[in-house]
Design a protein around this nucleic acid. Structure first.
Lengths: 148, 148
DNA sequence: CAAGATTGACGCGTCAATCTTT
DNA sequence: AAAGATTGACGCGTCAATCTTG
């Protein structure tokens, strides 16, 4: 049995069953991808951030952040101003609208999460926790760099 | 702690730290994406398969399978023949070359994740597998898995 | 019509090259 | 030169529309 393949299969399967690749429409009509929601969440926690800082937190390439942030700005959820101290940087910050959107997204997401938890038995939870704990420990012990 | 977001963050982090998003070059010079490797692995286990059957196993849309399989065929790793019994179907099967490639990929993959795998016992692996499987089953039972 | 497969338009990520600012 | 950001080309997935075969 090809045990080394299991983790990768499970990851891609999980992403699909959780619907992580599909945008979701929140009450109010706005549609958000997961990346957008995570970016707004990060900015709601601490603003302003440069695009590089945001990329570090989201684990995204600077080019991905550039396009992501441009989209958020276009929808009026975020403003960008050049840092007067160092004009290479953008200072990205949520707008009022962006803040309302991320709050509604959070609520909407929690409802889904609650339904999921309600369907789990205690044994199920134990199994999930054990699996994640093991994987996290393994990844941590190996470190962050991957091979070529 | 924002527990509802943890799963998504963890998944994307895991994918990047494991390098699952980029193709890997095996000894011999061929370059394989993860999807290609998983498809070849599936076909190595049971051939022939129709594209729909392959898509069911890989959890991919038929359109993704269509392009994926076309690429595998173009590289000479796979052959497609119309099923004479039902000419709507393709019978997809590995070639000699494809079989060699998937074997070499497996070996290389093990080395690639040597340190991670080395830190896992059989029980660890079972725990990870069980946890993910439980979570996938739970999400499925909740409905289609994603928010509308 | 239904099922299998294909194609087009698009989203979201990568890498590599480039531009501006320091 | 180095750092932050942008753009182009591409990979790999989605959905929707379409073609062929049954």
């Amino acid at each position: 049995m090809p045990s080394s393949i299991v983790i990768e299969e499970l990851l891609s399967q999980l992403i699909r069953t959780l619907g992580l690749h599909r945008p979701i429409t929140i009450p109010g009509g706005e549609t958000l991808s997961l990346s957008e929601a995570l970016a707004l969440t990060e900015l709601a926690a601490r603003s302003p951030l440069s695009q590089r800082e945001l990329g570090d937190r989201l684990q995204l390439e600077k080019s991905s952040v550039s396009r992501l942030v441009a989209g958020l700005e276009r929808q009026g959820w975020l403003t960008r101003e050049r840092d007067p101290e160092n004009r290479r940087l953008y200072r990205c910050a949520l707008t009022e609208h962006g803040l309302r959107v991320v709050e509604r997204w959070r609520t909407h997401w929690h409802q889904h999460h609650d339904r999921l938890l309600a369907s789990l038995t205690a044994d199920d939870l134990d199994a999930i926790r054990a699996g994640f704990a093991t994987l996290i420990r393994a990844v941590d012990s190996v470190g962050r760099g991957h091979l070529s």
